[in-house]
Amino acid sequence: MRAPVIECDCLSVDLGGVRVVDGLTLRVGEGDFLALVGPNGGGKTTLLRVILGLERFSAGSVKVFGGLPGSSPGRIGYVPQRLFFDREFPISVRDLVLMGRLSKKKLFQHYNRPDREKVDEAVCMVGLERLIERRIGDLSGGELQRALIARALAGEPELLLLDEPTASIDPQMKTIIYDLIEKLKERLTIVLVTHDTALIGRYVTKIATLNVTLELHEPNSVFPNP
């Protein structure tokens, strides 16, 4: 049996007095590719935030790499929703991706040559090498999304958490992003929050629907391949 990466047991989360996740039990093993689907407000993003240690839970238990959430930042890559960023912020793709090295650095330590090499690798991986000096405000939605994935990859994570990476992106770009994720699943454990139920069936190893409570499915049973 593969080593567990995420283990949630009877997990409940309350936000402002409302129960958004109730009695969730979930196990993600090394190399798994889990897709989390479900309606807006169903608790998908909240579950990711709990796993990252950003949100407290009210009952049950969560272990990430065998420890408390938030205790192993260097092993997790996080791709938040792209819509939340200030696109006027004066930062280039290179500096944005460099931020992915934060978890590997100590306080006061400046970035060095190995960090910059990892950034170049990650940027090549997502195919943005021509745009590396560009200001993020001048990227398209899909390009910014790939830059955020590169940032997560630059930290050499073992677990990758993606929050709706294809929301409001044109269909062609969606395929590019899914092909990229497909490449990554060979060496990473992935949890993906998405609405693209039609597209993901052929990529993932597990699908779970989350609407306050969680239901686990075999990928091909719910969303058969076309």
Partner: peptide, 19 residues
């Protein structure tokens, strides 16, 4: 603290996730 200040200015949540 240039890299830390950049991180919390741009994306405080990511900075927290990075430890």
């Amino acid at each position: 603290l240039s890299k830390e200040f950049l991180a919390i200015s741009f994306d405080e949540e990511y900075a927290a996730v990075s430890g």
